[in-house]
């Protein structure tokens, strides 16, 4: 799989926001994303998992060019996205599509379902006649299970339930046959019984069209189930990356280990040691020196607060098949 060229290749992405503050300093810099690199190959799903304030949505928005990255490179199909502007960017957009968290806000309530899908084709500048567009749009609706497509297409988006709306959003994204799909919490607003249907649909379509998927979520167990790889982000950095099964069964970064330990499980009396971290993700205006997780790190305390953790910022380095940014990663017992 590694021999296939990645569709998305992000290198050293940094996103900073200027924050106006009271007092003499005026403007301060909040670094939301701090040197993130990631690759996604055709048909592959990378889940970026993090808490609110971790920078996961900023990563997605920067890749979608909804916000300007401060530095770094974003290559899509070998082309540098950060250099595109104006019409070039608009036409390129059909190749990278996004599904948003809230289908109640992301769809225009004054449009019919069919118009919503057609709009997608118009904006992308697909030069075919109206009858052809309509045929494509109806096919797209059928494909996402909104049948009979003629009937559903004539309804307004506000008349649909959350699950149906998310299907419309998927149809509008997929009709352009994108190479990259960015899905930002695509099921977190939906009832649990409906999530499987939406995720199955996303998976089928992305496999069929060999789409690279960037799946943004706070839900580690969902990422574990859905993704091919998981990157855990903390305070704007990837702290651990690996295959879902490995990462969940053997987390090597203390933050991942704690996150895994508190995943709620729909079972009673599961024997487990919860590691409940105190405090919260650091303020992006005041990122701690050295390892940014050290102020909350149970291992840092257990090891007697080693100097290294506050003097040196750990790099993401490979340990076996996983990548970990920690000076003292958990070691696998060798047999």
């Amino acid at each position: 799989m590694n021999s296939v060229a990645p569709i998305l290749d992000v290198n050293n992405l940094t996103v900073e926001y200027q924050v106006k503050t009271k007092g003499k300093r005026g403007v301060r810099i909040a670094r939301a994303v701090d040197g993130v690199s990631l690759k996604i190959r055709p048909g592959e799903t990378l889940a970026v998992v993090g808490e609110s304030g971790s920078g996961k949505t900023s990563i997605a928005n920067a890749i979608m060019r909804l916000i300007e990255p401060t530095s770094g490179s974003i290559m899509l199909d070998g082309k540098e996205l950060t250099k595109l502007a104006g019409k070039e960017l608009r036409l390129a957009r059909s190749k990278f599509q996004m599904i948003f968290q809230d289908p109640f806000e992301s769809l225009d309530p004054r449009r019919t379902v069919l118009d919503t899908i057609l709009e997608s084709l118009v904006v992308a500048g697909i030069g075919i006649d109206d009858a052809e567009k309509r045929k494509l749009a109806l096919e797209a609706l059928e494909k996402v299970g909104l049948i009979p497509a003629e009937n559903v297409g004539a309804r307004y988006t506000y008349q649909l339930s959350g699950g149906q709306r998310q299907r419309v959003a998927i149809a509008a994204a997929m009709i352009l046959k994108p190479h990259l799909l960015v899905a930002d919490e695509p099921v977190s607003m939906l009832d649990v019984s409906l999530r499987a249907g939406i995720l199955r649909l996303m998976r089928e379509l992305s496999r069929e069209l060999q789409i690279a998927t960037l799946f943004i979520t706070h839900d580690l167990s969902l990422a574990w189930m859905y993704a091919d790889r998981i990157a855990v982000v903390y305070s704007g950095r990837i702290v651990e990356e690996g295959h879902p099964a490995d990462l969940i069964s053997f987390p090597q970064h203390p933050y991942t280990k704690a996150l895994v330990s508190v995943i709620p499980v729909p079972e009673k009396n599961i024997a487990r040691n919860r590691i409940i971290l105190s405090g919260e993700i650091p303020d992006p205006l005041e990122i701690p020196s050295g390892c940014r997780f050290s102020p909350r790190c149970p291992k840092y305390r257990a090891l007697g607060q080693p100097e290294l953790c506050i003097s040196s910022d750990p790099k993401l380095e490979s340990i076996g098949d996983q990548f970990v940014a920690c000076h003292f990663p958990e070691k696998k017992e060798t047999k």
């Binding site: 649990v192 019984s193 409906l194 199955r200 167990s221 189930m225 599961i270």
Partner: peptide, 14 residues
């Protein structure tokens, strides 16, 4: 309908 990390990794049913 919930992924259960204490069981085998498989797609949720819904």
């Amino acid at each position: 309908s919930y992924p259960n990390i204490h069981q085998e990794r498989k797609f949720i049913d819904g």
